[in-house]
Design a protein around this nucleic acid. Structure first.
Length: 490
RNA sequence: GGUCGGUUGGCCGAGUGGUUAGGUACCAGUCUGCAAAACUGUGUACAGCGGUUCGAAUCCGCUACCGACCUCCA
């Protein structure tokens, strides 16, 4: 913990020392889901990576206020689509209130996140609950000369903004390039420039979700809620804003413009973006139809999946890659992660029942601990962190064979640290050993396996194998050891 | 087309100007009645071509391929 946390700031494209604006308080805002469909593996990656950051900041002793929003305002599916929005469309098709749709998918999102052991944020604000605040910001932007009303809608004037500030600094875009490359879409005639974006959109009669305003009955633009809710709960300046790489442009770029246009200065000190996920090497996209929902992943029901994957395996798998690199989902790599995780579990059990030796020769516990912190401090380098964990796993296994030793003190130190690391920081809840099943139950299994030992002594291998085969068919794993046996339920 | 990023061993995935990443798979060995687990050993990995350097997979250039964003998406 001597070394301090360094994080990569998208804004500067550099790794920067993390220094909170008002230490020990940290304000952190992460873009949450639009609740009109089930959460998929992409949502999982973003949520898990920022959950890791949140947990680690708390572990380091910071007081973190963590905001993750719910987008439940029916934004338009695209600019060309005049009347329909995602939530409203679903509501119409299924004959439900839009808010029923939003609540339904919010509930499902929460349950998936719980399965992945993602902690709930400190505040989870809803866009629909902050319409007045959004209208206030629109008014300020108009007054400041960065927004204009047109036919009941209000647009952000990118050109006016860019004359004074720098539009495109986050994503590295230049306004001239945008001018040269903007496509002509329908329904944009209200805008002064095609790259202007909506702050308020006049609703068509079909549009179910709409609110009254001075401009029209309508709904807010989809970038606005994050600017409004982040500053409302974290202040005009806060530490971290996170989200998926795909949100960098235009969403986060527009957020910067809105905040600067409103307050005259930037709000966010560190912008962090997690990279995206591919499925069997291919982009995961709605149009490609290859996105896998978390329910499908956990139940194995998607056609691309060979089996069900436990949420903790999924979490571990995601943490095996660095968050700023793309990550490919495939059966082969998920199965590899499943086995790797089991290896850690086994070693932890070995460690806890190991006979201590007088001195520790198998490894250096302090080095291990320091290495782990160094990896986390280096922009949350979990792959490196896990490589240290696996080296330690090997050392534990060697010590378990008796070739090397670990002292009582170090056994305790090591197992406490790894428990803390896995449960508290990485959020991978380790499997509990079969204790939970009940005394009598355990005694019965032990009895069967003792009978098997007797059979083996009598060279009655048919009986011995039968006990092992039938128990394993029932979901037990049986291992023979020098002095008896070990078992666990899968 | 514009902007940006990537190409590492069967697969996943780190990293670095000179030292074994790690996981998983495969093969062989130890152990075992047989398995499983564990341990040990083996793999001529850094897209191609040039350049800089005592030395490059790591820096530079070119080529090829892939991807992201530019349109809703984590």
């Amino acid at each position: 913990m001597e070394k301090s946390l360094v994080i990569y700031n998208t804004l500067t494209r550099l790794k920067e020392k993390f220094e909170p604006i008002n230490s020990p308080n940290v304000g952190m805002y992460v873009c949450g889901p639009t609740v009109y469909g089930d959460a998929h593996v992409g949502h999982a990656r973003s949520a898990i990576n920022f959950d890791l950051l949140y947990r680690y900041l708390v572990h380091l002793g910071y007081k973190v206020r963590y905001i993750r929003n719910i987008t439940d305002v029916g934004h338009l599916e695209n600019d060309a689509d005049e009347g329909e929005d995602k939530i409203g469309k679903k509501a119409r098709v299924e004959q439900l209130e839009p808010m029923e749709i939003a609540q339904y998918f919010t509930n499902r999102y929460h349950s998936n996140m719980d399965q992945l052991n993602v902690k709930r944020p400190s505040i989870e604000p809803h866009a629909s609950g902050h319409i007045p605040e959004q209208l206030e910001m629109i008014q300020t932007l108009i007054e400041n000369g960065f927004a204009y009303e047109s036919n009941g809608s209000v647009y952000f004037d990118v050109e006016a903004y860019n004359a004074k500030y720098n539009y495109g600094k986050l994503s590295g875009r230049k306004l001239e390039d945008l001018m040269a490359n903007t496509r002509e879409l329908d329904g944009q005639s209200e805008k002064r420039n095609p790259f202007d974006f909506a702050l308020w959109k006049k609703a068509s009669p079909y549009h179910i979700m709409q609110w009254n305003s001075a401009y029209s009955k309508g709904f807010p633009g989809w970038h606005l809620e994050c600017s409004v809710m982040s500053t409302k709960y974290l202040g005009e300046k806060f530490d971290i804003h996170g989200g998926g790489l795909d949100l960098m442009f235009p969403h986060h770029e527009c957020e910067i413009a809105q905040s600067v246009g409103t307050h005259g200065h930037e709000s966010v000190k560190y912008w962090m973006h997690n990279n995206l996920i591919t499925i069997n090497g291919q982009k995961m996209g709605k149009s490609l139809g290859n996105f896998i929902t978390l329910d499908e992943l956990f139940s194995g029901s998607h056609a691309l999946l060979e089996k069900a994957y436990n949420p903790r395996v999924v979490r571990f798998f995601i943490l095996q890659a660095h968050y700023r690199n793309p990550l490919d989902f495939s059966n082969e790599s998920l199965i590899a992660a499943e086995k790797a995780l089991a290896r850690i579990s086994e070693a932890m059990e070995q460690l806890k029942k190991m006979n201590p030796s007088a001195t520790t020769t198998a490894l250096n516990v302090d080095d291990f601990v320091n290495n782990c912190y160094a990896a986390l401090n280096d922009d949350l380098n979990t792959p490196i962190l896990l490589s240290y964990v696996f080296e330690t796993v090997k050392s534990i296994n060697i010590a378990a064979t008796g070739k090397e030793g670990i002292s009582q003190t170090d056994i305790q130190k090591l197992s406490q640290f790894i428990d803390m690391l896995l449960n508290e920081i990485l959020g991978i809840e380790m499997e509990q050993i079969s204790e939970s099943s009940g005394e009598v139950f355990n005694q019965v299994v032990d009895l069967l396996l003792n009978l098997r030992i007797d059979a083996k002594k009598n060279k009655d291998f048919a009986t011995a194998d039968r006990i092992r085969v039938e128990l394993s068919n029932m979901g037990f794993t049986i291992k023979d050891t020098k002095d008896g046996f070990e078992w666990k339920r899968n």
